[in-house]
């Protein structure tokens, strides 16, 4: 996890921006890479956190409110 160079992050930004059809000039690529590198450092402990397979994401989606009454 610590072997990524600034050049790798620049490459990642260029490649993922192309994948998302997001046009970026070189100056933007450099600025975005700086932010992404900062986030990557911040998220490193979270990436090391052991999570069991049934640790599901926090929910927000619900298909419909649970019915107040059972169907007749």
């Amino acid at each position: 996890m610590n072997d990524t160079t600034p050049f790798d992050i620049l490459d990642f930004v260029r490649a993922s921006a192309r994948l998302l059809d997001l046009p970026l000039d070189d100056a933007q690529v450099a600025r975005v890479a700086t932010h992404l590198a900062r986030t990557r450092a911040m998220v490193a402990p979270l990436r090391l956190l052991p999570l069991v397979p049934d640790a599901e994401p926090a929910e927000i989606y619900c298909p419909a409110p649970f019915p107040a009454e059972d169907p007749s």
Binding site: F12, V13, S16, A17, L20, L22, L24, Q28, R31, V32, A33, T34, H35, L36, T39, V43, L46, R47, L49, L51, A55, E56, P57, A58, E59
Partner: peptide, 26 residues
């Protein structure tokens, strides 16, 4: 704007991991 763009490019695994952690954290 650069933070918005950086966020759009983040690997999905970071986001999903954050949401999985959030449930345990709660």
């Amino acid at each position: 704007v650069d933070r918005f763009i950086a966020g759009a490019l983040q690997p999905a695994e970071w986001y999903v991991r954050a949401q999985r952690f959030r449930r345990l954290y709660r």
